[in-house]
Amino acid sequence: MRPIRAKLTQLMIFGVLLSMLAGCSYLNPKPLKPWDRDVLARPEMQLDADSMEDLMDTKIYFSKEASRGGANIGGGGCGCN
């Protein structure tokens, strides 16, 4: 059972990585001029806009669930899991 699952996992990861690459090649929109980046430059549009909430959520869910990672790396360890 285990080897099959491991194989399936590898296949799935390979498939998603491939579609990521394909997606990135497809996603090639027209370049924006600097003066068209006003909305993207707003604080609430940044990837770290909810940094203090994300910081707390990462720890809460790391200590209450068995998954980790995804958005970023770094930060201190915790004996809560």
Binding site: C24, L27, P29, L32, D36, R37, V39, L40, M45, L47
Partner: peptide, 9 residues
């Protein structure tokens, strides 16, 4: 990360 258009990332 990819800029989609003027409105999104």
């Amino acid at each position: 990360s990819q800029v989609l258009n003027r409105q999104g990332v």
